[in-house]
Design a protein around this nucleic acid. Structure first.
Lengths: 363, 363
DNA sequence: TCGCTGAATGTATGCGCTTACACTCAATGT
DNA sequence: ACATTGAGTGTAAGCGCATACATTCAGCGA
């Protein structure tokens, strides 16, 4: 009744457990006839090797971990049972049902990239998305199961990371390097935002753009603002003289910020947002107020999410390669796994400034 | 240099390894003072327990697995290095750049649901997306690492599943039950499509809708067609007299099918598609041809993906709760883990018919 | 005072595998 | 004919933990 083990297979096939193990791990070290015989026994018994035992003996798990905190509000799914309602409900779905399902695109894509690269390199991928529950616990749990781990920067206390990194390589995703000695993978936030801002100044004569930033503790936001400031400074515009509004990366928040701007009466020529979601929120408000984009106000975002490509007008933005980020994180882990003592890597992936109708006028 | 083990912690703290283990697993069995002392040592040494060893000794891994085949074409990411190009590229992004990134929403959402439920129940989640590489190998690999596994129906040979299910519980996602004895979770495809079709017949007087189906081997498609047929039959319309076109669930394919319909000259009053992607493809063509939806032709989909909520006109569809599917799959695994010999479960989640402008006329 | 009880801790075994090393024996060289 | 070789296989020692069972000892009643 219990699942068969190497011993069962060995006994059944009339060989030693070492031979069974070799058939599975290093088939060439076994004579072909023996190999076939053992494989047949494996099939017959329904033998599936225990990865736990293998990992223990081999001193490596063959699994990589990915941890992200759960930003999205939607996580609070009801505990209610979902299997007792009617099989079908008919709903007349009106247009303004709003932002039903804010897909955590960022995470989905990074995950997809990691998953892809991990399996390609012969590793499995363990994912954990932090929720209400203690992140430290979850991260520790993952850490014990994997050979290496990627973590979104700033989502876990440094002390914990230090602790864990004594056991396995840690790669920080999307944050800039701080005092730490971890490997990092991130995108060219500064250059991207600088280039976009320069474009607004040089091509559209914008002199006093308004920046709508994200949460104070977001390293990405900080870098983007830095790029914004650099562009202004290079054009002899004093960044400090311009208003710097702060949102929380959400569309809703950005709407109220935009309402505030409109109410204040003095609309800027351009609103530069630190991410796409907020830019979309600004577009929502301007559209409702009948303010033309880009004729009256130019709006730009950052991230390159799909929704920004489907908005009206389509959103000018800086696209960051999220799938590549995930892949790069995996590569970094494996690279360090290979050479534990190489100096910390800090990889910057390139971004693309995508000029679309929210800044360039319609086609 | 090597990561510390229980032995190190025990020696350092002056206790036995049993006590260390107990401090971590059953803190209440240890005197408070001892516990604190051991925990301090754990922190000092940077001890992270090996899940491999624990799983081996405890005979359970605390991990659940999720396997999906990789439908999407985008998987073929270039092997090229991505870290040597310029940090920023400026691109004038024209509107018709087409369907750049067809997000595998289905999988993303099921994954999110599984991930959520798994951690909530104290399990980690291992994900595998089948790609070019041998699915059997990947599935076996996952199987050895987990306590239970969810697999998209039809994506893995039954023989393999039988093999594996001798070791761990298997849950099939989204397929109907066939001859097998596995647990299943799926949605009310039949009822959903039947209700939608009845609506078209009863409210819009449609008498000869055209059905655009998916791949022959898709169980979901089969069920949806079944619902379509039931609705017709109940209204004394002979389904066999109507054309049944077959696509592959892709938007592109659906476009050429729609082109064919238009070219043939005789447009049906309604086109019922087996998924949203294809419905969107049909909308593409009708829009280009200047055919009005829903005035001239009604179009409906199935799935409830985000893109269908952002199309013009918005797509009438049947929404299936993908996140819940993932959650239900996890619950089913745990339920069976609990009672290995209960009869096979077959859970059907409810769906929602969403009536929108592609069938109801604009607001 | 002494045996008894139970809380706290230690001892020892095994979980299922990998792998260094030992061994066997047919093929080869001298 | 005999030593040498190496391919193929077996033996046995862990890997790091959980846990049944043994042990210790403080507190207790009689």
């Amino acid at each position: 009744m219990k699942p068969p083990t190497v011993y069962d297979v060995a006994a059944h096939a009339g060989v030693s457990i070492a031979t069974v193990s070799r058939v599975l791990r290093r088939p060439d070290d076994v004579r072909a006839s023996t190999r076939e015989h053992v494989l047949a026994t494996v099939r017959e018994l329904g033998y599936v090797p225990s990865a736990s035992a293998r990992s223990l003996a081999a001193r490596r798990t063959g699994v990589l971990g990915l941890y992200f905190p759960g930003f999205d509000a939607m996580e609070e799914l009801d505990e209610a049972e979902f299997n007792q309602s009617e099989p079908v409900n008919v709903i007349v779905d009106m247009p303004d049902s709003g932002e039903v399902r804010p897909p955590n695109l960022y995470f989905d894509e990074v995950l997809r990239g990691s998953e892809l690269e991990a399996w390609r390199r012969g590793f499995a991928l363990l994912v954990g998305v932090g929720r209400g529950t203690n992140p430290e616990e979850m991260v520790s749990d993952i850490a014990g199961r994997v050979d290496g781990m990627a973590v979104l920067a700033r989502s876990v206390p440094d002390a914990l990371l230090d602790h864990i990194s004594r056991r396995i390589p840690i790669v920080l995703v999307a944050g800039p390097r701080r005092g730490d000695n971890f490997d990092h993978v991130s995108v060219s936030n500064v250059e991207g935002m600088r280039t976009l801002t320069e474009h607004l100044i040089d091509r559209h004569g914008v002199r006093a753009p308004v920046f709508i930033g994200g949460p104070v503790d977001s390293p990405d936001d900080a870098e983007r603002y830095e790029g914004f400031v650099q562009a202004l400074a290079a054009r002899d515009i004093d960044p400090a003289a311009l208003p710097m509004l702060r949102g929380d990366f959400s569309r809703m928040q950005a709407r109220s910020i935009a309402e505030g701007l409109v109410a204040a009466g003095e609309l800027p020529r351009a609103v530069v947002c630190s991410n796409d979601q907020m830019a979309l929120g600004v577009l929502d408000v301007l559209r409702r107020r009948g303010i033309r984009v880009p004729e009256d106000v130019i709006v730009t975002g950052f991230d390159g999410i799909e929704a920004g490509r489907q908005s009206t007008p389509r959103l000018t933005t800086v696209h960051q390669p999220m799938v590549d980020l995930g892949r790069a994180a995996v590569r970094a882990m494996l690279s360090r796994l290979d050479k534990r003592d190489q100096p910390p890597i800090s990889l910057r992936l390139p971004v693309q400034v995508l000029l679309r109708e929210s800044s360039e006028g319609s086609a």
